[in-house]
Simulated assay, not measured.
Amino acid sequence: MSSPLNPSGEFRIAGKEVRRLGYGAMRITGPGVWGEPADRAEAVQVLRHAVELGVDLIDTADSYGPFVSEEIIREALHPYTDNLLIATKAGFVRTGPDRWHVLGDPNYLRQQVELSLRRLGLERIELFQLHRIDERFPVADQIGVLRDLRDEGKIAAIGLSEVSVAQIEEAGRTAEIATVQNRYNLLDRASADVLAHCAAQGIGFIPWAPVAAGGLTGPGTALQAVADETGATPSQVSLAWLLAKSPVVLPIPGTSSSVHLEENMAASCVSLTPEQVAALDALA
């Protein structure tokens, strides 16, 4: 059953039913997703408040900080409740603020899984996602090492990030793919075909950067009209639109502010009519 504080519906990952409106833990690091946050105590409080508001899916990555996000999650929430699913990722090496370098060497991926287990204080990572496919290594080798780690009981389910339909199908020949995390929002619909594929196959679709309304807001815009009709903010409408797109969609808005967190989570209470969804669809 959905929490009255997060009535967003559920989706099953690794045998767990999680509420579809989760939390992305990238923003609890420093500028450029690098180093410590300005206020670590506030970051800890935001994570704890997210759980209080009904969040049971928290998404992070070893590259956020690097390592900082995973470490703060453990500080804030360990020992974890049985219903909480911590999802993490590997596949990027960091050399500085806003610097991301793809690395999918299977030996490196295995190492990072082991290190994430230690940092998070877990015996098994429920959802482990390949942050990017590295073209320098066969996809079967990158997914294969995650499949081996799954078989060893160190991860429960495998996900992908920023992939095409063809890449999902290729990866699926080596191991079952539970989720796909691609950029998708009101402004960026480039992954519409990936969402359609995930919906058809029952694969969870985790849109990152889910709130990106930009120039769509303002008097006279369709987004503002729907916001006015529902009494919600444009950001809340953006999240409600994602939740309405498909039951496989699991938005993970991130923030380092408790006030902003509460606004995001309240989006799960915003109900859109088919006409409102169609008006927002037409903004593409």
Rank of each mutant, 00 (worst) to 15 (best):
G96Y: 02
G96R: 07
P97S: 08
D98Y: 10
W100K: 04
H101V: 15
H101G: 10
V102Y: 08
N107S: 15
Y108G: 11
L109A: 14
R110G: 15
Q112C: 14
V113A: 13
V113S: 10
S116K: 04
L117A: 08
R118D: 15
R119M: 08
L120N: 14
L120H: 06
L120P: 10
L122Q: 10
L122G: 09
R124P: 06
R124I: 15
I125W: 07
E126S: 12
E126H: 12
L127C: 09
F128W: 07
F128S: 10
F128M: 12
Q129Y: 05
L130F: 06
L130M: 01
H131Y: 01
H131W: 09
R132M: 06
I133L: 09
I133Y: 12
F137Q: 10
P138R: 00
V139R: 05
A140C: 13
A140E: 15
A140R: 10
A140M: 10
D141E: 15
D141M: 13
I143P: 11
I143S: 12
G144D: 14
G144V: 03
G144T: 10
G144F: 09
V145M: 15
L146N: 11
L146R: 03
D148F: 14
D148R: 15
D148N: 13
L149Q: 08
D151K: 03
E152S: 04
E152F: 09
E152H: 03
K154Q: 13
K154T: 14
K154A: 11
K154Y: 15
I155C: 02
I155H: 11
I155D: 14
A156H: 11
A156Y: 11
A157C: 06
I158L: 09
I158H: 02
I158G: 01
G159R: 07
S161Q: 07
E162N: 00
E162P: 00
E162T: 07
S164F: 05
V165C: 03
A166P: 12
A166C: 04
Q167N: 11
Q167M: 06
Q167F: 01
E170N: 03
G172M: 03
R173F: 01
R173M: 01
A175F: 04
E176D: 02
E176N: 02
I177P: 00
V180T: 04
V180M: 02
Q181N: 06
Q181E: 14
N182L: 05
N182S: 01
R183E: 09
R183S: 06
Y184W: 11
Y184T: 01
N185Y: 13
L186H: 07
L187A: 05
D188R: 09
D188P: 00
R189L: 02
A190S: 09
A190C: 01
S191N: 03
D193Q: 11
V194A: 00
L195M: 00
L195D: 01
A196P: 05
A199C: 03
A200F: 00
A200N: 00
Q201S: 08
Q201L: 05
Q201D: 06
G204P: 04
G204D: 04
F205G: 01
F205E: 03
I206M: 14
P210K: 04
V211N: 06
A212N: 12
A212F: 08
A213P: 07
G214C: 03
G215L: 06
T217Q: 10
T217G: 07
G218Y: 07
G218N: 11
P219G: 08
P219F: 03
G220C: 10
A222W: 15
A222C: 13
A222E: 14
L223W: 01
Q224H: 06
V226K: 11
V226Y: 10
A227N: 11
